[in-house]
Simulated scan of single mutants.
Amino acid sequence: MRKLIYYVAVTVDGFIAAPDGAFDFFPLEGDHGPWLTERYPKTIPGHFRETLGLTQARPRAFDTVLMGRATHQVAVDEGLASGYPHLRQYVFTSHPGDLPVEDGLTITSGDPVAVVRELKAEPSDLDIWLCGGGALAATLIDEIDEFRLKVNPLILGAGIPLVAGQAAPVLSLRRRMAREFESGVTYMEFVRA
């Protein structure tokens, strides 16, 4: 069965974005960048893929991406219909009618848990990427199989937390791996124990 993997950049104090939703303070330069790009080439937004020579990159981890409206809005604000046209995309929003649509992009006000359970049941060797945001992560907390975190040496003090809002506690995670980079970023994987 496919897994739902929450792969996201986070600060030391647990925020995935500033209070206004900005996340441009996360460092892109450094020795962590090439390693993460090699491991997760399909997580690079579509409009950067050609510049980075990733248009022919085969999927290594994910073929589907899930996100909330605010995460998707970043691409819309750049004039794009979607940020990840090379993946099958699901955007969860309470106002689906006011977003541009393209092939491979599903905009829905449906139950995220039901959608994830259907996606997990599909036959595939590739997993499902939850790329944001914190409120969607809270809704899907019981469906998240792994947390793969790019922990950045930053403290915001306030912002959008990794899991925002009411969520059932997850008290049984096991760290599978950690890799430290000279840039100060630490990549960590946690799985349900």
Rank of each mutant, 00 (worst) to 15 (best):
H32P: 08
G33H: 14
H86L: 09
H95L: 08
P153F: 04
S109E: 14
L126V: 02
D31C: 02
P96Q: 11
V185E: 11
D145A: 11
H86A: 05
G104T: 00
A138G: 12
P112F: 12
E189A: 14
A61F: 00
L171I: 01
T71P: 13
K150F: 08
M67I: 06
R88G: 09
P19G: 08
G21L: 12
T64D: 01
R148Q: 12
A158G: 13
W35D: 10
F15R: 05
S82Q: 15
T139S: 10
Y7W: 10
F48N: 03
R49V: 06
E180M: 12
L126S: 10
Y90A: 05
S172H: 09
Y6I: 07
P153L: 03
L36Q: 11
P41S: 04
D31K: 04
L99T: 08
S82H: 11
P153R: 04
I144Y: 03
G83D: 08
A70S: 13
R88F: 06
F25S: 15
L130S: 07
D145Q: 07
E143F: 05
E122L: 14
S183L: 05
P100R: 11
G134D: 01
T93D: 03
G14L: 00
I160L: 04
D125L: 06
L156E: 04
Y84S: 11
E182S: 13
F62V: 08
A22W: 08
V151P: 07
A137K: 02
A178K: 00
V91D: 11
Q89W: 09
Y90C: 06
P100F: 12
D98G: 06
S109C: 09
R174K: 10
F23T: 03
P100G: 15
A70M: 11
A138V: 04
V10M: 13
P27L: 01
E146A: 05
V74S: 11
L140W: 03
A75I: 01
K120S: 13
V191C: 05
T93Q: 05
V8K: 03
S124P: 04
G110L: 04
V151M: 13
T106F: 00
R2E: 12
T93G: 09
